[in-house]
Design a protein around this nucleic acid. Structure first.
Length: 312
DNA sequence: GTACAGGCAGTAT
DNA sequence: ATACTGCCTGTA
């Protein structure tokens, strides 16, 4: 299969982008544009008349040139068919996959990813997008494509040199401390991205947790989206809700649970679960879903948000 | 005005 | 170990 036909069969960019994993992508005039560090990426899906009917023709573009970026960013090196069929015994997940075919985990530029999730605590997707696009507009490079204006993501070095009030003007609030901690760690080589990619999940996670403002959830997002840890399973309030609704039996099977047996309201259950140690829940889910648990997490997240009728 | 939104660190028990 | 609290900012 060619990359292009793989893409059209298995990737629905709208779902991936809307799942909140890609903050700086947008659709303009039937093309998708995204910021990957200092690159602007673009792809367009054109319906093309062929002998045997309509066959989608996908075109990719990047500036500055980033050869075969789609293979890297859409993780075409992953065998998506075998990953998804590995989940077939799980009925909830199978339903989530059936309802939202085309959701994929996408690779992000690591520095951008770390800084993006440094902005992600105690806020929502709309706000995160606003913070990040303001940071780009103020401190990134302007690129003009198709008569449209884009701004690249500033380097850690550039961000590290900004004053606190310059960062505050992007609406990041108290997260300025976390952003600075991240850029500081990157600039001083205290955090070595290539090392974090090579190292095992536990090792890399421990490294990330040393950074001020980076806790369990944010570390797992960074590991999953930019450090090649497909087993990372970030747990936020939505995933907690999903575990509570669909995977309580796992907890009971794990025998750790003594509080959840009686009748309780959903809210009370969530609070109980929330108190659960993050590591216990996360490890339980990683064991259940295996090496590609992160894919499962994305489907579950999108599924439950969709059911809750959240708009983006 | 109040509650809440994809968490985290600091402090007190 | 576990519970509680404050935090920037914007929206409903």
């Amino acid at each position: 299969m060619t990359d292009s036909s793989l893409l059209s069969s298995f990737i629905n960019p709208e779902i991936s982008v809307n799942s909140g994993q890609m903050f700086l992508w947008q659709k303009l005039d039937n093309s998708w544009y995204g910021i990957y560090g200092n690159h602007v990426l673009k792809f367009s899906i054109l319906e093309q008349d062929k002998d045997e009917g309509l066959k989608p023709n996908i075109q990719f573009f990047s500036f500055p040139e980033f050869k075969n970026w789609e293979r890297h960013v859409f993780r075409l090196d992953d065998d998506i068919i075998s990953i998804l069929s590995g989940f077939s015994k799980d009925s909830i997940l199978s339903r989530a996959i059936r309802t939202h075919p085309g959701l994929r985990v996408m690779r992000q530029e690591p520095q951008q990813c770390m800084i993006s999730f440094a902005c992600a605590s105690n806020t929502n997707i709309v706000m995160i997008r606003r913070m990040l696009s303001t940071i780009c507009r103020k401190f990134g490079h302007r690129v003009s494509i198709d008569g449209k204006e884009f701004f690249t993501f500033p380097s850690a070095d550039r961000l590290n040199k900004l004053t606190n009030s310059e960062l505050l003007s992007c609406g990041v609030g108290y997260r300025v401390k976390t952003i600075k901690a991240v850029t500081q760690n990157i600039v001083s080589n205290n955090v070595d991205i290539e090392h974090l990619k090579r190292a095992k999940y536990d090792t890399s996670k421990k490294e990330l947790l040393k950074i001020y403002g980076i806790g369990n959830k944010i570390a797992d997002c960074i590991l999953l989206f930019s450090l090649e840890k497909t087993e990372a399973f970030p747990i936020d309030v939505w995933i907690t809700r999903a575990i509570c609704l669909y995977y309580r039996w796992l907890l009971e099977a794990n025998k750790e649970q003594k509080n959840c047996s009686e009748e309780r309201t959903l809210k009370m259950e969530e609070k109980l679960l929330y108190r659960y140690k993050y590591e216990i829940l996360s490890e339980m889910m990683r064991k259940h879903f295996g090496k590609y648990a992160g894919y499962a997490q994305q489907y579950l997240f999108y599924y439950i948000r969709q059911k809750a009728d959240r708009k983006w």
